[in-house]
């Protein structure tokens, strides 16, 4: 994506709390996400890590029981008060846990976002397909069959297609929600490799159940437990000398 890549941006949550109905999912989380880093988010089930991720691009809006307090900023703009959901989602892309292409061709999957944004220029769309697929390390495998159904790809290929699809929107930030939970080790390695390459141009947030994965790819790691941010630090510190005992317990596999 090279020369014209946008200057990656930062995000920040301030005393961010979330409720679904009467259940509180996040309790006053304050946390910053730096430009061109991979922030790993770890924690056991129901720790609030996915709720946090979905707060970052307003994917919770569709849930009628969703309520929030606090503030999340994208380059200093409050995404819940100063921007609308659609704009936020165009700038902050997400890759879901399961590889879920839409039942269309590979090309149409990639162009879904750009077309709806109003891009009509054929040459530019073609270029976008190639560029996104290359960035997601899928181009060589599918360049000859861009018009065949995306459902025919393998699980790992489908997940990289989903990454390419997100990149085609040219977002500033990319969120990953346990992107390898359905994949075999080889596909997982490919996806991880892709993420590390993307770091050069994007700001990335990776939610994962796999602490080893967080250790492999993240620059910094945040540990969530029961809706609270327990600890945030560089990967090295978190995995070698965590300050909080609960972090240590989780990382060494005593619960979760």
């Amino acid at each position: 994506m090279v020369s014209e890549a946008p200057a990656a941006v930062t995000m920040a949550a301030q005393q961010w709390s979330v409720w679904y109905g009467t259940v509180q999912a996040l309790k006053s989380v304050t946390l910053d996400i730096r430009s061109r880093e991979i922030l790993g988010v770890i924690g056991p089930a129901n720790s609030g890590k996915t709720s946090f991720l979905r707060s970052l691009n307003r994917m919770n809006d569709m849930n009628p029981a969703f309520r929030y307090e606090g503030k999340i900023a994208l380059d200093r703009q409050d995404i819940y008060r100063e921007l609308d959901g659609q704009t936020v989602r165009r700038r902050v892309g997400i890759v879901f846990a399961l590889p879920l292409p839409l039942p269309m061709s590979i090309r149409e999957n990639i162009l879904y976002g750009p077309r709806l944004r109003g891009e009509r220029n054929r040459a530019r769309l073609e270029e976008l397909v190639e560029r996104s697929l290359k960035a997601a390390s899928l181009w060589e495998e599918v360049r000859d069959r861009l018009d065949s159904s995306a459902m025919k790809l393998s699980g790992g290929q489908q997940q990289r297609l989903c990454i390419a699809r997100t990149l085609a929107m040219e977002p500033d930030v990319v969120l990953f929600d346990e992107p390898c939970s359905g994949l075999d080790p080889i596909s997982t390695a490919k996806v991880e490799e892709t993420m590390v390459q993307l770091k050069a141009h994007y700001t990335l947030v990776l939610v994962t159940n796999n602490t080893k994965q967080a250790a492999r790819v993240s620059d910094r790691v945040a540990f969530f437990l029961m809706g609270e941010l327990i600890e945030l630090g560089s990967t090295e510190v978190m995995f070698t000398a965590p300050r909080d005992r609960r972090t240590n317990d989780y990382i060494t596999g005593r619960f979760g």
């Binding site: 691009n57 994917m59 569709m62 959901g85 659609q86 989602r89 165009r90 892309g93 997400i94 879901f96 399961l98 879920l100 839409l102 039942p103 879904y112 976002g113 709806l116 944004r117 699809r165 997100t166 929107m169």
Partner: peptide
Amino acid sequence: KSFREISLSLGASHWQTVRHAVLPF
């Protein structure tokens, strides 16, 4: 339901989602 989520996550509006990710199927 995931089709709707995917479409929204790709920056589509509510109506665009209905029109392009739900209705055709």
